[in-house]
Design a protein around this nucleic acid. Structure first.
Lengths: 190, 190
DNA sequence: TACATTTGTAACTGGTTGGTCACATTTTTT
DNA sequence: AAAAAATGTGACCAACCAGTTACAAATGTA
């Protein structure tokens, strides 16, 4: 057979991304990655230093959130800016499966292996939604609603509904977007 | 040794509850439960029909949310009622580890075994927070914020922070409560 | 007392996990 | 060409998993 380390490393990394996207945190094990990549698992240890090293590589490369980098240029301040960030952010969140699975991961564990990955993800999330540390009711309400958006997005993978709300309908997400927008507006008016 | 089926069944059930509360969904396996109960795992199959049956028993007995039953008497309508439900609900949610782990579970899977359990849990959550199916901005905003509260509660088990917000401080949760309250107020005023 | 039923345990099956090892083959260097 | 280094594979290990089986001991009943 042909031998090509660079290509093999790429196959392993792509297999990891693919599995994380499809199966979530539970799906990324050494055996599963090796099988998906069609390669001996020994090479994962040799080239990346196991799953731990693979995660570190992932965190440093940081090519989740790729499609969002255009946003975090300006520093938000005005109300319409905040509304814009919110709308763009929620849309992206719903479409980016990889990010969703990392966020799901944070609800399951946080050990030495995942530490760096989560740290970087969080800073990116903060930028996307323009979340600052102002101690205002609006900011707290905003964070709560972003958290809710994340929650419902993750929930929708396995559950059709939250109580009576149908998470599969586009209308539901439009309603959430509008409620978020209106809340910002109301807080700003008073 | 002494033989006592009723006592053994209780030991198994308590072991299950204990493991779910401490270790979460990942912690409740047949072997772990049997070990925790100090009993042969065969008995779990014989008395409950395995994990599936144990979950069914749990769902039917429904003694999570025990401490909340006093709430869901009245049907919410007024603004102050909604605020009251929100405040009591969030407080209870933060204190009830068992409920938290079931909610976490819903983010991981939803199969034939867990179906009934989740169904019952959701109806209880709906009652606690007096969530109805009115198609208003306030209702959507409210649901989003309750979702956020659930998210941050689950997140706080493994993560100290959400972006810059310290989830370990009581003050943070007070801020969330106040923001929730104020949002209801603002929506009602306009 | 003798037999049947219930309660309980321990061992075993077949499968999966993460991790390591010895070996073969290809590529590079001398 | 010969030696050395890099690349890749499959087997192996110990630990775990769910589930089943065979058997022992206690309890109930005839």
């Amino acid at each position: 057979m042909k031998k090509n380390r660079a290509a093999t490393e790429e196959k392993i990394y792509e297999a990891f991304l693919s599995l994380l996207k499809e199966k979530g945190p539970q799906g990324v094990g050494i055996n599963a990655i090796a099988k998906e990549a069609g390669v001996s698992k020994e090479l994962i240890y040799r080239y990346y230093g196991g799953l731990k090293g693979l995660l570190l590589h992932f965190a440093q490369k940081g090519d989740f959130f790729k499609s969002l980098l255009f946003i975090n240029q300006k520093s938000s301040s005005s109300v319409s800016d905040l509304q814009h960030f919110a709308k763009e952010g929620t849309k992206e969140l719903r479409e980016n499966k990889l990010t969703q699975e990392i966020l799901r991961w944070q609800l399951l564990e946080n050990n030495e292996d995942t530490k760096d990955l989560f740290k970087f993800t969080n800073s990116q999330i903060g930028k996307i939604f323009a979340i600052n540390d102002k101690d205002t009711s609006l900011n707290h309400a905003f964070q709560l609603m972003i958290g809710g958006y994340v929650y419902f997005t993750l929930l929708s993978k396995f559950n059709k509904n939250f109580i009576t709300t149908d998470l599969t309908k586009d209308e539901t997400w439009d309603n959430f977007d509008n409620a978020l927008e209106k809340t910002i507006e109301l807080f700003n008016k008073e």
